[in-house]
């Protein structure tokens, strides 16, 4: 019965979201005074940021600024303090394995696919927390990434870097997230593939209404896609603003855009 309603595989909450409509956007993810450390090394020194529903937000920063750690702190994969609320719900004490059932999917740096599992198995495990039939969703993401369909019985470890990134994104989407966390999706990929991938992200955001928080070194690319962004330096947010403002900011141009 429900499978008819869900044929297009888009979560209802995401479909009737606010993208393009009037009125203030509600805040989907909010981090307050977030700190994180590895052992004695403090990586995040109390940062605040928000991801409005329906938006693409980006965190820019150089290597070692704490971008990856920020995403890991949201999912409680590092020891952290401060508050993280998702859809108004406090998740900073949630177990990593519980985060995804809140509607938050994390595509980690280096793809994080399951190399010894087939492409289809990777997608199925992506829908692990769901109890309904996954087939329609798998077909849907195969449509979006035909390369994955061609390779569906192949082991994920045998895919190219670009294909693995597609698989990682498709796997994350299998949980029908409201928010997608993407950690350096462009890392190690050829320019054409990156362009493809970011077009896909744009489609996902505009057509399926998936909210995104992207962490990127490639500022040009990220700011083209994003609605607004933050600049992270040495564990602190030094700048924030709309994507256009950031693009025109001279400090950002000097440090990140190579202009």
């Amino acid at each position: 019965m429900t499978s008819d309603q869900e044929r297009d595989g888009v979560p209802d909450t995401a479909k009737n979201e606010t993208n393009g409509s009037s009125g203030p956007k509600s805040i989907m993810l909010k981090a307050e005074n977030l700190t994180a450390r590895y052992g004695q090394v403090h990586v995040l020194r109390g940062i605040n940021f928000e991801v409005p529903e329906g938006d693409v937000s980006v965190i820019l920063g150089a290597n070692g600024a704490g971008k990856t750690t920020t995403l890991r702190a949201i999912c409680n994969m590092v020891s952290s303090t401060g508050s993280v609320t998702f859809g108004g719900e406090q998740i900073s004490k949630s177990d990593t394995a519980d985060i995804v059932s809140h509607g938050l999917a994390h595509v980690p740096q280096g793809r994080g696919t399951f190399p010894e599992l087939s492409v289809v198995d990777n997608l199925e495990i992506g829908g692990y927390v769901r109890t309904d039939n996954l087939k329609d969703d798998i077909d849907r993401w195969f449509q979006m990434f035909p390369r994955l369909k061609e390779r569906k019985e192949q082991l994920a470890g045998s895919l190219s870097g670009g294909e693995q990134q597609m698989l990682a994104v498709a796997r994350a989407l299998m949980s029908r997230p409201r928010l997608l966390l993407l950690d350096e999706p462009s890392l190690g990929l050829a320019p054409l593939i990156i362009e493809d991938l970011f077009n896909t992200f744009r489609n996902l955001n505009e057509e399926s209404g998936v909210t995104m928080l992207i962490v990127e070194q490639n500022a040009n690319l990220a700011l083209d896609l994003a609605d607004h962004g933050y600049v992270l330096e040495a564990g602190q947010i030094v700048l924030e603003g709309s994507a256009d403002d950031l693009k025109n900011d001279s400090a950002v141009q000097d440090a990140y855009l190579g202009a």
């Binding site: 999912c75 980690p108 399951f114 198995d121 692990y128 949980s175």
Partner: peptide
């Protein structure tokens, strides 16, 4: 399903946790 989860944990424990596997 538990078998799939077991193979996922064997393959990449951290990613398994991220997709919700205990």
């Amino acid at each position: 399903k538990v078998g799939l989860a077991f193979r996922a944990v064997s393959s990449n424990t951290e990613s398994a946790r991220l997709v919700g596997v205990r």
